[in-house]
Simulated scan of single mutants.
Amino acid sequence: MNFLVGLTGGIGSGKTTVADIFTSFGVAIVDTDAIAHELTGPRGGAMEAIAEAFGPGVLLPQGGLDRAAMRRVAFSDPEAKRRLEGILHPLIRSETERRCVAMAWAPYVMLVVPLLVESGVYRQRVDRVLVVDCNESTQVERVIARSGLTAEEVRAIMATQASREERLAVADDVILNEGDRAELEDRILPLHRRYLELAEVAGRHLTQR
């Protein structure tokens, strides 16, 4: 198995931008959010079970998941949220595992997991935890700008996630993302070099067993 770096951060922290920069350095990215979108798109692998569990009210005309409708259901009913997670999470984990194994060509794999801190499963699987950090006000501003949600809606989503303090408490490495992309690249490059070294050492240990 490849050396795995778990990338996480709160909504609006800039995980996608950070992952894109690591990709430009030749790192393989496995994004659990992207996998979830595939599973809940038209003809996605989770849609039959979701339709059976929640009915047509959470479906788009094309057959994919109506995320806004599902969000309203999940936020108003904790049991519905648990049912949705019970459908999606095993499928996401299975596909994540498959993709990580297929990335044997990469120097290391970055596993992007928004809820890594909340999930004991992923925390146990990765070799390092990298947290993208920023002020909570920055998170709110970014999400409003890209999604059209209100500040109250964004903060409601944030309230369901680990706090900033909880994420930082489990981090092996932290990237502060309050500036521009060039500043972010300067912070990421030393980390990338460090991960290359750690991956090489881990690889040597495996071959010596």
Rank of each mutant, 00 (worst) to 15 (best):
N2K: 10
F3N: 02
F3H: 07
V5I: 15
L7R: 00
G12Q: 00
K15V: 06
F25V: 00
V27W: 02
I29S: 04
T32S: 15
D33L: 14
A36N: 07
P42I: 14
A46R: 05
A49T: 07
I50W: 10
A51T: 13
E52W: 13
F54P: 06
G55R: 03
G55P: 05
G57L: 10
V58Y: 11
L59M: 15
P61A: 12
P61M: 07
G64A: 15
R71A: 15
R71W: 09
F75P: 03
S76W: 09
S76N: 14
P78N: 01
E79A: 15
I87D: 12
P90T: 08
L91A: 11
I92L: 13
R93I: 04
E97N: 13
R99A: 07
C100Q: 07
M103S: 15
A104V: 05
W105H: 14
W105S: 13
W105N: 12
P107S: 00
M110F: 08
P114C: 06
L115P: 07
E118D: 04
E118R: 02
S119C: 09
V121P: 10
V129N: 01
V132L: 08
N135H: 14
N135M: 13
E136H: 00
T138H: 05
Q139R: 15
Q139E: 08
Q139K: 06
E141S: 12
V143W: 01
S147Q: 06
S147V: 06
S147G: 13
T150V: 05
T150P: 03
R155K: 13
M158W: 00
A162Y: 00
S163N: 02
E165D: 12
A169P: 07
V170M: 11
V170A: 10
D172V: 08
D172E: 12
D172K: 04
V174W: 03
I175M: 07
I175D: 03
L176R: 14
G179N: 11
G179L: 11
D180K: 02
R187Y: 01
I188C: 03
A202H: 06
T207M: 13
